[in-house]
Design a protein around this nucleic acid. Structure first.
Lengths: 202, 202
DNA sequence: CGTTTTCTCATGCGAGTGCATGGTAAAAGG
DNA sequence: CCTTTTACCATGCACTCGCATGAGAAAACG
């Protein structure tokens, strides 16, 4: 929906905010959450500190913006996976794989996500954002599980919601060990397939 | 093994270091990883900044010390669980439960652990410490799974190592969602039992 | 005792922090 | 034209940071 603007200086605010959010992402990824500062982000975004302050009045607000953009990004990626319209079970598998740090881009996303997981425990606003996004992800998983059950690819006695929670927890829990180099991408994929195999319909 | 000391001022270095590490833990828990500073930790430990610097020359070293103490602490807790000598399957269940944020003390430990998971992605030394501790935990899990299999409580066709990885990943992955308030402790325990139920021997 | 070694402290330094402020260019409306 | 609104920038302020330094207190040894 187009905003009814506004007299002077035609500037796309959403674009600017996304630009800032992505700069925050890069800083978190490259130098960690502790290196995030207004100056550092401004430099990374190629704009002055005052310009950043114009769109984001406080550091906490800046981080919250970056967190929300992560959520949007994940949503877009998962929607793209869902659009493939393959077998329900393959769809489920691809969805989980999309969230795992199996290549550079997904590692990039997971580094940032992990940083926010830790940060959100201490920051109430970030925790609220997490509580908002989590049910969406879990219901997305559960829906795909139910579809696979309906298609006869997953056992019907499975509790879709619980399986969704377990599957998502597995995906999140394997992230650090993988980023730290304990698992190879192949091993992670093998673990997922091993787990999914037992959910198959007999 | 007792250290051969040393002339003056009888001071237990290990005790001092543990004292500092625990102060770091409290700061991370209460105010987050970003609030950890030499001054803040010194104040929390009730000692001067210079005293802290005597035992720990740099901030990174201080964090590494705190991380290693977390590993030791977890090891002690798990050893205590293992000492209960109940049924192999109950032992496995209790071991996982011990790592989940189901009460205040375990939440305390998990907050700190989650902070270090994020931090270790950016800090090489911390990552190395993680890579050192992970196999121990996983083999601990795997061993208990094998024991349960030998006791006829878990299906023999299960891959103990993979099950251990999945179980541990589940435990780690559920942490943030629980700390953020998405799951109640009861729901988490129910999820674990739901998962373990399918591993039962027929 | 005094010497030696261990331990602790206060302080300083340069750099970086979040945030506020005042000023200014630019575009649209009158 | 001039005014108004938007967008941006440079700078200042009070504070904190990690770390280094040098002095001094405390305890064992001669």
């Amino acid at each position: 929906m187009r905003k009814r603007w506004a007299m002077p200086k035609i500037v796309d605010h959403d674009d600017r905010r996304r630009h800032i959010a992505e700069a925050v992402h890069r800083v978190i990824h490259d130098r960690g959450m502790e290196s995030v500062s207004l100056r550092e982000v401004a430099a990374e975004a190629g704009m002055s500190m005052g310009a950043v302050q114009y769109y984001v009045t406080t550091k906490d607000q800046m981080l919250l913006l970056a967190l929300e953009h992560i959520g949007v990004w994940i949503g877009i990626r998962l929607a793209a996976v869902a659009a493939r319209r393959s077998t329900p079970l393959d769809l489920l598998r691809d969805t989980v794989l999309e969230l795992l740090p199996l290549d550079e881009e997904r590692s990039y996303l997971n580094r940032i996500g992990l940083a926010f997981q830790a940060s959100s425990v201490v920051d109430d606003d970030q925790a609220a954002a997490m509580r908002l996004g989590l049910p969406l992800l879990l219901s997305f998983f559960a829906e795909q599980i139910r579809a696979a059950q309906a298609a006869g690819q997953l056992a019907t006695h499975l509790d879709a919601d619980k399986e969704a929670s377990i599957l998502y927890a597995f995906a999140q829990g394997i992230v650090n060990a993988t980023l730290v180099g304990h698992y190879t991408p192949e091993e992670v994929a093998a673990l997922l397939d091993y787990h999914l195999a037992r959910l198959h319909a007999g």
